[in-house]
């Protein structure tokens, strides 16, 4: 499942991160690494971007980037 498809309120675990090397590196640096727990907090009023909680902080991420993050149920 892609992170972009996760409903607000759910908690999931990251399985893999794709995307072009630069963006991927950025996601990894921000704590979106394999095994990390992610809570989807909400979608923006215009549906994109989405707000997630990871590594104890809140992060806004666009759907295009969230599509590159594969997640599984906890």
């Amino acid at each position: 499942m892609k992170l972009s498809e996760v409903e607000p309120g759910s908690v999931v675990v990251i399985a893999d991160v794709h995307g072009n090397p630069e963006v991927r590196k950025k996601l990894l640096d921000m704590g979106l690494i394999k095994g990390a727990e992610v809570k989807v907090v909400r979608n923006a009023p215009l549906k994109d971007p989405m707000e997630i909680e990871v590594k104890g902080y809140n992060l806004s991420i666009r759907k295009v980037e969230a599509e590159k993050v594969l997640v599984v149920e906890r």
Partner: peptide, 8 residues
């Protein structure tokens, strides 16, 4: 208050 990511 955001120590985990900051220590990165």
């Amino acid at each position: 208050s955001n120590i985990e990511r900051n220590l990165y």
